[in-house]
Amino acid sequence: MFTLSARGSRDPDGDSLSYLWLNYPEAGGWKTPIPAKGAENIYRVTFRAPPVTKPETAHFVVAVTDKGSPPPTRRRRVVVTILPR
């Protein structure tokens, strides 16, 4: 299991934020989707790493959206290296 966090994201106007975490299998070495464990729309999310026989990379994207008007969205990619046990 590993946890990714967007804690510290903020809106200069003070509007609340929404979060969408996505595994992006097309970009990395690991092609099988890795689903999130737990609630959606939170700044922190946990994933269960798949068993691997060699180091593999997995790409994740978080989209943080301001609930103001208009609702701008920023995206950031995180690359995780999954190691064999």
Rank of each mutant, 00 (worst) to 15 (best):
L17Y: 11
P70L: 03
V64K: 02
E56K: 00
P71T: 00
R75F: 12
N23Y: 09
D11C: 13
A39D: 15
P84Q: 05
R85I: 00
S5T: 14
P50G: 11
P33A: 12
K31T: 12
P84N: 00
P70A: 05
K67R: 10
P50R: 05
G8T: 12
A58K: 07
T73M: 12
T73R: 15
F60S: 01
K31W: 13
D15Y: 07
S18Y: 04
G38V: 01
R44D: 14
R10P: 02
G28W: 05
P35A: 02
W30Q: 09
P35M: 00
R74S: 12
K54Y: 04
V62H: 07
A6N: 00
P55M: 04
S16Y: 01
P12K: 10
W21Q: 08
K37A: 15
L17Q: 10
P25I: 07
P12L: 12
D15A: 06
R75I: 09
P51S: 09
V78L: 12
N41Y: 05
R44S: 15
T81R: 13
P72L: 12
A63K: 01
T32G: 13
R85F: 06
N41V: 09
P50S: 13
V45M: 07
T65S: 14
R48L: 15
S16C: 03
A58V: 02
E26H: 11
V78F: 15
N23A: 04
T65W: 02
G29A: 09
R75S: 14
V61F: 06
A58Y: 05
P84V: 01
V79K: 01
P12I: 14
S9D: 10
I82T: 08
T81F: 06
S5L: 08
V79Y: 00
A27C: 03
T53N: 10
G28T: 09
V45F: 03
R10N: 14
S5W: 08
L20D: 13
D11T: 02
A49F: 08
I82L: 04
Y19H: 14
F2A: 08
Y19F: 14
T73A: 11
I34L: 08
S16T: 12
W21D: 04
V62D: 00
T81Q: 13
K31Y: 09
P51Q: 13
L17T: 11
R48Y: 10
P55Q: 09
I34V: 10
W21L: 00
L22Q: 15
P70G: 08
